[in-house]
Write a protein that binds this DNA or RNA. Structure first.
Lengths: 231, 231
DNA sequence: ATTATCCATTGCGTATACAAAGTGTATTCT
DNA sequence: AGAATACACTTTGTATACGCAATGGATAAT
């Protein structure tokens, strides 16, 4: 196996492990251990760290090891402020710009997501959901919105992994509802219906928000940004 | 001078040179030349490249040198779609969250900007303007919006540098108007007036948009995103 | 004359060695 | 006994060397 492949393997492994919280938010990454595990020298490993830092997966501090980016109370609040706006814009643009090939890819991702709901583990479900939304980002194809969108997706995945309990029937029902919303999103994009796509984006994030609010949020959220995006 | 300082010097130099188009969009960066100029070995130089790639200044391609990120027709269109929404959200949050210390910093940046209008070069003006808006981003302090906001600022600076002609009196007048808008933005933030800040954001971007449309945009822009952010 | 192929050279990616900064522990002094 | 300092060890940052891939030019063949 070539070093180049081991490097990309490391990159995707870390991304998946962080998205599924297999590596917890705030955890330190051991450079030496990773070098050993992936048979890479320090140079390429450190380059992967830099890339992941640019994408928002990890934080780099001087003279200290990299740390998985944190999920604090503050970031949760920021998340619910920014998500409705960015996600609405992404889905609106996706409905406007999506190619037929991309729509087929989105259907495929939704199939994978449904399969993960039936037989997969919670991390499987999270990664499949993440992939679904990544594709909507590719459809939108706006290089200025994608950086924020990707950061939102990272923490959306991690928040879901943190607070989701499969044994809770209400949560299981919410996930089914999310799957139905995915189907509606695909239909809106295929029909090039921007307004419907934007509306579904709001519904989809509200579903997440209510689920998390019910179980973890300590205090009320006022949403000036949401009212800005949709008065 | 310590290697660490030379490294940060390289980073800020490249950022400034790219923002002011001293290094043109699409230009290749010569790794060896930079190593010589800044007395650094390849390792730290390459790490700086990775960081700048994560921030959107340069693009990295496999087995090829880094290239300053491009300013194409497509990116211009994406820019005017995303800017009003992101910038409106940033200024709204800035008015909500700004500390007194930050407001003082913003006043200072505006003083620098005004000085650059009077006696500085066009790059000076661009960097001062960029710094002003960076501070509004710090005020907003939303980690999910900042990545996109920073990318917008990079290309806003480069678009200004590309199309600004100081000998054109209309453009000079526009820059004065922009300065007056900065003052109004400071007032709105200091007064914690979110609505006014959001409105000024739209005015400020429209000024840029009209200036650029008048001189370069080949065809009309419809702005579904703008209408979404402000129906 | 034009195109294709091969060789040389340039430069990118990785590994390793070295230097410096930080951290933890142990010992000594108060 | 507690605190402070010094020393050792761990970990991060930088420099250099080596191997390989890609590109460009030259030569040969059609």
């Amino acid at each position: 196996m070539a070093a180049r492949d081991r490097k990309t393997a490391l990159s995707t492994h870390l991304k998946h492990a962080i998205l599924t919280t297999a590596i917890r938010p705030g955890a330190d990454l051991d450079e030496a251990a990773i070098c050993g595990a992936f048979e890479l020298s320090r140079t390429p490993v450190r380059e992967v760290f830099r890339e992941l830092a640019g994408l928002g997966y990890v934080d780099l501090r001087d003279n200290r090891g990299p740390r998985v980016s944190d999920l604090s109370h503050t970031t949760l609040r920021d998340f619910f402020l920014a998500a409705p706006m960015i996600y609405g814009a992404i889905l609106r643009l996706a409905a406007h710009n999506a190619t037929d090939v991309q729509i087929q890819a989105l259907r495929g991702a939704q199939e994978t997501f449904r399969a993960a709901l039936r037989v997969g583990s919670t991390p499987d479900r999270t990664l499949a959901n993440n992939r679904f939304h990544e594709i909507t980002g590719e459809m939108a194809g706006n290089i200025y919105l994608l950086p924020s969108f990707h950061r939102l997706l990272i923490d959306h995945a991690r928040i879901s992994m943190t607070f989701y309990r499969p044994e809770n029937s209400t949560m299981a029902e919410n996930v089914s509802e999310a799957s139905r919303q995915h189907d509606a999103i695909i239909d809106a994009i295929a029909a090039r219906d921007e307004a419907a796509a934007a509306h579904l984006a709001e519904d989809h994030w509200n579903l997440s928000r209510h689920q998390i609010e019910r179980f973890v949020m300590p205090s009320a959220l006022d949403l000036p940004m949401g009212s800005h995006a949709r008065p």
